[in-house]
Design a protein around this nucleic acid. Structure first.
Lengths: 236, 236
DNA sequence: CGAATAGTGTCTATAAGACATTATACT
DNA sequence: AGTATAATGTCTTATAGACACTATTCG
């Protein structure tokens, strides 16, 4: 840090959110349709500008989260993805966006809130196979967010953040399958999960959809880092 | 910039660098001694403010890198750590810093450059055991940088970025041992590394320190992601 | 030769993958 | 009974860890 007396460059700080959840066993991301230029009418990640110079960045992310999505905020995972902002990112001027990854269990009423009319859940298919391009560099941010979620499933208990509590081990397995886009062997998955002490804790019992044997219920345990990790099937 | 209804919050964008390298088989980080307030005389990560509103952030990071460290820029790894900036981070006003992790092999002359007098390599011991506190939130940034390097050693070929080419497998092993702070079995390490196709490629042969059998030389291969990963010994 | 470092081989414990089997609900 | 889902068990294979052994240089 050196300079002291020159006027600061005019740079706007934005916050963008990659909000992931599971809907009917599929990974979904919350998008909004832009009502103003630029990229009017196109889909984009929810977000907005920092209100004041002394607003905390995480607070701004939480504010946007409340405005856009009606999620279970009590069990919310929120982490920063990073800063995005090439000089030509926004035609209105220099904008640097701090992107956040948010993960929460689905709620009965998925989309409602101040700006709800503009918000919609869309399948978070791999950006490559995505038909429409997102505004700004949001395709890149979304891809980074999904990749972050995928890698963190291996070594952290992030998967439980997708599940309303209490959940069954089948629920948890569906999280891994949906986020990774693979099928896992049920028996091996059970053995793995229950072999990591503190990952999940027993809760009670219930039957789910009037079909088959009732499943045991669990809640997230105190362990946040997984040893040994739940390894993703090797692709190459 | 067009005329806006509200003037943008006065926010300064800074770039800070966690520059890691290996010196005499120990992980070191480049620090500078601050010559101005605040935190005058205290150690800090090298960095500076964005020059202009249209300067690319990565360019600013590279500029600081050139100013502070005389490293092998041809084999440089540079990745973003994230944005840091609580409202009270800097007493001079609102500053949001984009932190980068830089990794490069050591050069014969380690520190020299424009602001070289202020720069010094210090052992990157775990921040907990560190005796002096860094300025601002740089202890946190440094800890995040080291942790990022540690996890990326497992699944990427990042370790080769620490080694001047060509390198021996012992050199590479020392990288893992220094960054992870563990001892690895040589035989198992050889088996592992050579079992990942494209991780390292043969180069020639040489003897290193007039002692013992000469070691084969390698250079970094095309593979950047490691399958299967080089797993860190389980701690808990 | 001995010391020192490089590299290979081998045995064992552990974890993963495939897959069969049992368990418990429902209609 | 028949079906559907949950949970456990078993066998095989791959991999990690420990460690002994051989190889090649130097003095």
């Amino acid at each position: 840090m050196s300079g002291e007396t020159w006027s600061p460059p005019a740079i706007l700080i934005a916050v963008d959110l990659v909000i992931l959840t599971l809907r009917s066993s599929e990974l979904h991301v919350l998008l909004v349709e832009r009502g103003t230029e630029p990229y009017r009418g196109q889909h984009a990640l929810p977000g907005g500008f920092l209100n004041t110079a002394d607003e905390d960045i995480v607070d701004a992310a939480l504010r946007e989260l409340r405005e856009e999505a009606n999620l279970d905020l009590s069990r919310l995972h929120l982490e920063q993805l990073g800063a995005y902002g090439g000089p030509d990112r926004d035609p209105r001027g220099r904008v640097i966006s701090i992107a956040y990854l948010a993960i929460a269990p689905e709620l009965p009423e998925p989309v409602a809130g101040t700006d709800a009319a503009r918000a919609l859940w869309t399948p978070a298919a791999d950006p490559l196979s995505r038909t429409t391009r997102l505004a700004f560099d949001h395709d890149q941010i979304l891809a980074d967010g999904i990749e972050r979620a995928r890698t963190k499933l291996e070594r952290t208990s992030l998967a439980t953040a997708f599940c309303p509590e209490p959940f069954t081990l089948s629920d948890l397995q569906q999280v891994y399958e949906a986020v990774w886009g693979v099928r896992l062997d049920q028996g091996n998955f059970y053995r793995k999960v229950r072999g990591v002490p503190g990952f999940v804790l027993p809760a009670g019992e219930v039957r789910r959809p009037t079909k088959g044997r009732p499943a045991r219920l669990y809640k997230a345990g105190p362990r946040t880092t997984l040893h040994p990790p739940v390894v993703r099937p090797t692709l190459p």
